[in-house]
Design a protein around this nucleic acid. Structure first.
Lengths: 191, 191
DNA sequence: TCAGTGGGTTGACGTTGTCAGGTGAAACCT
DNA sequence: AGGTTTCACCTGACAACGTCAACCCACTGA
């Protein structure tokens, strides 16, 4: 019924899901290979057949996070301005719903299989640039596109660190994201 | 010669320095309490006399990072625009020179003594707002101040993750920081 | 002088990442 | 078909780690 390759693929899938689940629950330190194996229904040493080490497994989880984000952005429709705000909202949402996974996505890719995480994040960048290119001049594309994406990621990171809840800024992440999007999407900038 | 209190303070200082050194060298996982003790000239259990656990020790290192950044920003002089760029440059510099410590400063403060890290980062925010307040209207102060600070932190985080070197953005962190600073410092925004 | 305090050490325990060797069933070959 | 190879997986083992309890001892205050 199930070939050996299918069985192995299913195990790999289960390992990734278990790792993502544990990451969401308690951060990278809560992802123990023993528990990953247990939740995937295999033994503690099984992950080593699919991933070089724990670092690589977490990198694969992060890569899948980028992949999913890319798909979400690609599926957006509406006006360019709508899609821009939708893309930023997708980034905000993943940060709030899966803070640890989000942090992993922005972690330096140590032990990254063959650069799979970087490749996945590049696809997200491309989907994002496709939207921004409809809103700004070509000469400003990468500058404003990069600014929007990295800027919003920093705003979310600050929120996750508690720098808004307990900090001095009398504002919110949502307001900042909106401000940034408005500045660029509505062309309120005069060069 | 040396009182007990002085000796204890010196040990605490040595522990913090050793932890910061190890953090810079190899990230949080490279900070082992055994090695921290060894470099500080004490035993592996000594840190527990000064910090609740490893998490708290790392939090204290992060808090000192914020303190030092606050001092740097407070010591700036020149025009408001100069000081703004100087403050942003200080953030960029610490990110590049001490990437792991930088990341720790933006990590969620788990096991934070009595919120010492948050308190330290608030001081940085205040020093920063003092500069921004000379450049924008009061009603925009927190919005633009927060946007600058968190935005730049995100740009640096993206650079540290390799999202510029290997990514799609045909731009650099420096250019983005400059763009963001220019937008706000030079009032190129029309509301 | 003498008990008390507290910084520091050491032994010990459970947990973790990781690897070497073994096992059994699927895949391949003739 | 039968024998052989392959490979995903399991298990035992090991070193390193965070953490705690018990202990030691120099300094402190009266």
């Amino acid at each position: 019924m199930v070939s050996r390759a299918e069985s192995a693929a299913a195990t790999r899938r289960a390992l990734l899901d278990a790792a993502a689940e544990l990451l969401d629950e308690g951060g990278p330190d809560a992802v123990t290979l023993r528990e990953v194996g247990a939740r995937a229904g295999v033994s503690r040493g099984a992950p080593y057949g699919h991933f070089a080490d724990k670092e690589t497994l977490l990198g694969a989880v992060a890569a899948e996070g980028w992949e999913r984000l890319s798909d979400e952005i690609a599926a957006l429709d509406g006006t360019p301005s709508d899609r821009l705000r939708g893309a930023l909202a997708a980034l905000v949402t993943i940060g709030r719903r899966h803070p640890h996974r989000y942090r992993q996505m922005f972690a330096p890719p140590a032990g990254d299989e063959p650069g799979s995480m970087i490749r996945a994040s590049c696809r997200t960048q491309e989907e994002f640039l496709a939207i921004v290119s409809e809103l700004v001049d070509e000469q400003d594309l990468h500058r404003y596109g990069g600014l929007l994406f990295t800027g919003v990621s920093g705003i979310i990171a600050a929120e996750l660190s508690g720098h808004f809840a307990t900090g001095t800024w009398r504002t919110s992440a949502d307001e900042l994201v909106d401000t940034l999007a408005t500045i660029i999407a509505d062309g309120r900038l005069h060069t």
